[in-house]
Structures are given as C-alpha cells and as structure tokens.
C-alpha cells in the first residue's frame, strides 16, 4: 500500500501548454510596435472620413505628438521641435543620398504624422507645419480618431 501511494502523479500539461501557445500566438499577431511612437494620452479629434496612412516606403514616417499645451513629444520624450525636425530631416537626407535617391524640388518622400490634441490652437500647429515644410517635409498626415472612444 505504501508503495502505491509513493507513486508520483504528474498532471497532464498538454492542454495548458496548448492554451498558452494559442495566447502567445494571439498576442504576437496583435502586437503594435508603432504604438511606441504614439502618445495615447492625447485627445484626438473625431473624423469619420479619416483613413489609414497611405505610405509605402523604407523609411518610417516622422511622428510628432502635440499636447494641449503645445508641447511636442516624439517616441515618448519631449523634444525641442526645431532641432528635432532639422536633425531628422538631415539624417533622412543622408540616408536617401546613401541609397541613391534624388530629391525632387528638395521634397523628402516621407510623411510627417501630426498627432495633435483637439484643443491645440492653429498658431501652434501652423508653426510646426511650417517648420516641417521648411525642412523639406511636404506630405503631412493629420491624425484623427475614426470614431469616439479609445
């Protein structure tokens, strides 16, 4: 009797492993690496006709988050927008040059995504758009939520 009670009983781990792998697969498929460049605390305007960004290129779009005080953030950090846009444009020009891409009329073939809080005033927004334009960014994508709620 004592011999039979000392036998080790192992639970069948196969179903739990199956379930865990299913969950891992789900999270791997829905993971959003681009989310890191977005400030999800911003209250974007709602516009039903807003569409996903139509851009197919090797270089990542430049994302600028503008909060209601007009402070610009990129990749989670507050930036000096003048210096930041200038350095990003300079870097992109170097990369394009190295890749043999010629600029047409000095226009950078990469869009700038402007994610501004809906209460940001036009003066703040215009200043940033003009800055991007001066550095060669002419494609501007203005972000909005396609429906209410997050």
């Amino acid at each position: 009797m004592s011999a039979s009670s000392s036998e080790s009983y192992e639970p069948n781990l196969t179903p739990i492993l199956d379930m865990v792998f299913q969950l891992i697969t789900f999270f791997m498929l829905v993971i959003n690496f681009k989310g890191a460049s977005m400030d999800l605390t911003l209250n974007l305007p709602v516009l039903g006709s807003a569409r996903p960004l139509e851009y197919i290129g090797r270089h990542e779009p430049l994302t600028l988050n503008i909060d209601k005080e007009g402070i610009v953030k990129s990749r989670g950090a507050t930036v000096d927008v003048d210096a930041f846009v200038a350095s990003e444009a300079r870097l992109l020009k170097l990369l394009l040059d190295a890749g043999g891409t010629k600029l047409v009329d000095g226009e950078l073939p990469v869009p700038v995504v402007i994610r501004a809080d809906k209460t940001v005033n036009f003066t703040s927004l215009l200043r940033i758009m003009r800055l991007c334009q001066a550095e060669g960014y002419r494609q501007i994508a203005l972000s909005a939520m396609t429906r209410e709620g997050k």
């Binding site: 516009l47 494609q139 909005a144």
Partner: peptide
C-alpha cells in the same frame, strides 16, 4: 491599436 486615421495633405 488605436482606431486612428489620417487626413493626408500635400503642402
């Protein structure tokens, strides 16, 4: 992922 879209303009 946010339900986010864009209005693309060319300046």
């Amino acid at each position: 992922s946010a339900i986010e879209g864009h209005l693309q303009v060319h300046m």
